[in-house]
């Protein structure tokens, strides 16, 4: 089963069903949960930030989703000049569409007929959160971080993505200041679709590079 297919049914906003989380209030707090609550309270008491600041940050992160990245991709597919600006300066191009991509520079890497891009952070889990939301667990896992640089095609195959031998696979290890977004190729059969519909084809996994957009159903 292709992860890309699961996501495209939800038009890029949904995920595969998540495991049930037991109600936290019924269980004792763990050491690290206590630490999180205590540190938060102490920093508010000391005036480092307010409870309102904290709530607003959480709300802001909750509002981030792959829909932002998908909007950029869909616009790039339909507007060649925008695509150039996206590749030149992703943060600035995002602002054109009313998306706040923050101050950490994001680099968009474009898939071509002869090159497929995929992103990993072997040293930690750097990820363009402001354009895609929080990363999935697997992106942060030991298996992904260790194997993607060494055997990208095998890992891509596990995601159901087969890249032909005559297409180069380019792995980007996000080691320093930049975050990366993959600009997938526009799928065949998508002519005449409007931007919103095109954005619906672009899943989070396509913008990490472990999937490619499905051709639209007719």
């Amino acid at each position: 089963m292709s992860g890309a297919r699961d996501h495209s049914h939800d038009h890029g906003h949904g995920h595969a069903p998540h495991p049930f989380q037991p109600d936290i209030e019924d269980a004792p707090l763990t050491h690290h949960q206590l630490l999180a609550l205590a540190v938060g309270e102490l920093l508010v008491d000391k005036g480092v930030f307010t409870g309102y600041d904290l709530r607003r940050q959480i709300e802001d992160m909750d509002s981030r989703s792959p829909a932002s990245g998908a909007k950029l991709v869909a616009r790039a597919w339909t507007d060649a000049a925008f695509k150039d600006r996206l590749l030149q300066d992703t943060n600035k191009a995002a602002a054109e569409l009313g998306i706040d991509a923050g101050t950490i520079p994001i680099m968009t890497v474009e898939n071509m007929p002869d090159t497929h891009n995929v992103i990993v952070c072997t040293l930690c889990s750097c990820y363009p959160r402001l354009l895609l939301g929080l990363p999935p667990d697997w992106y942060k896992s030991r298996a992904y971080r260790s194997r993607m640089v060494r055997e990208p095609r095998a890992v891509l195959a596990e995601f159901g993505t087969a890249i032909p031998g005559d297409v180069a696979v380019k792995v980007h290890d996000s080691t320093a200041e930049l975050r990366y977004l993959v600009l997938p190729m526009r799928p065949t059969g998508s002519d005449g679709m409007d931007e919103a519909a095109l954005a619906g084809l672009v899943t989070r996994d396509c913008m990490i590079g472990v999937a490619v957009p499905d051709a639209p159903d007719h």
């Binding site: 495991p19 936290i24 959480i58 667990d137 697997w138 995601f159």
Partner: peptide
């Protein structure tokens, strides 16, 4: 690669927010 995902718990989002602040 285990294709695990989970919804972030409130305390995890709190940690993330604390760091950003």
């Amino acid at each position: 690669v285990e294709r695990r995902e989970h919804d972030y718990a409130p305390w995890e989002k709190r940690v993330d927010a604390i760091m950003r602040l």
